[in-house]
Nucleic acid binder design. Structure first.
Lengths: 211, 211
DNA sequence: AGTTTTATAACATGTTTATGTGATACATAC
DNA sequence: GTATGTATCACATAAACATGTTATAAAACT
């Protein structure tokens, strides 16, 4: 069954080009291409909902980012891909925070756009590589700092991994073929290094990336 | 000029396959493929630095995530792409935080891997669509894959938060001004809903966003 | 050569957790 | 109007955990 796709794009040439191309694909059908969020909202009231909407940011009337919020609020099951020339971090993050599931730059080729929609329907999140780079950089800037004093030995890391996997001391002892008292000994040292005094805190620190 | 690529991957078959394929490409050259971070670090001491390193996470000796940190610390100009079977959110985020510039799942085809490397050299950030989806979800901070059967009540969420904060039953009882037996009762119900039977597992699930 | 670190192990003891069973009260749902 | 779910509390017991003390041996460091 073909997935329905909608387009919100104010440049008629681009809009028609994309619509015609997508509509030609076996897997897709593109019954609606409008030039404003307002028109799309009207359309959604009265017709079968598309599975995916391609949306520009710069639009007459309401901005695409504001549009994401409104559409997702009423129809959370619709996935929205931004298709825009903007690659500044602020617009990207606002769009993603508003609920966009993908972000493509406008120079993306028609086959790639098609590929992205199929991807999205399959549970992926299409992003132009330059966009992904910015998103990743954002992560690295906010990286939590590790406590240098908390350098664990390889064996201690093994034990921590066991704890994170939800194992008991006995199960950890079995996994690494050592005695339970040795596990205890390692745990004692780990607690000292991490300044904690329970399994729970070790697991939390580990999963937060602080080890 | 061909970009140099290094590989750290403990499965010899996969390693050789990728190396041979990449080395065949005009744009790339793959002079080094080893099975541990330790070996790669040795290699880097004595040879021309690769532009990009493909790295597994699960490795003999030091984990790939720890390896990212060490390599980026000494050679920040090298870009690292994770190539792994893990699609666990925490592994992804820890890898990205540690300094990875891309994250591909192992089922990625050889041509796609090549494409990703070229992409990275051009300033992009290759990511498998499923990975991108998780990264985006993180932005929207909506839970990735809640188990519908595991719907906790508000009070149960309080208790889980207490556990995640590393509190004992007694401390949780104090925090919410209820009896320790009530805490026990809630914990029992939580375990039942989540199909687990230890604090550790609840904390792990919670921090992995599975609650 | 001597010290520190790592990995191993045993024994003891008190605390915390996991689990069973049972009960009361209130609100919502069917 | 009686199930169902939430929130509360109690008592009991076995298992798991936290912590103290002590010790051996190999590896790494000074």
């Amino acid at each position: 069954m073909a997935s329905l796709v909608g387009i919100v794009e104010d440049n008629k040439k681009i809009r028609d080009l994309i619509q015609r191309y997508l509509d030609m694909q076996d897997e897709l059908s593109c019954p609606v291409a409008v030039d404003s969020v307002e028109e799309m909202l009207e359309y959604l009231e009265e017709h079968e909902k598309p599975r995916v909407i391609l949306m520009d940011i710069q639009l007459p009337g309401m901005s695409g980012i504001k549009g994401i919020g409104l559409i997702k609020e009423k129809y959370p099951e619709i996935d929205i891909i931004m298709l825009t020339v903007y690659h500044d971090s602020h617009k990207i993050f606002n769009a993603l925070r508003a609920g966009a599931s993908g972000y493509l730059l406008k120079h993306t080729s028609l086959p790639e756009i098609k590929e992205s929609i199929v991807n999205l329907v399959d549970g992926g999140a299409p992003m132009s590589p330059q966009i992904a780079r910015k998103v990743i950089n954002h992560f690295q800037d906010n990286a939590p700092k590790k406590n240098p004093d908390s350098d664990l030995t390889p064996r201690e890391h093994d034990i921590v991994n066991g704890l994170v996997d939800g194992l008991s001391y006995k199960m950890i002892a079995d996994r690494y073929d050592i005695s339970i008292d040795t596990v205890r000994a390692h745990i004692r040292n780990i607690y000292k290094k991490l300044h904690v005094n329970s399994k729970a805190e070790v697991i939390a620190k580990s999963l937060k990336g602080e080890i």
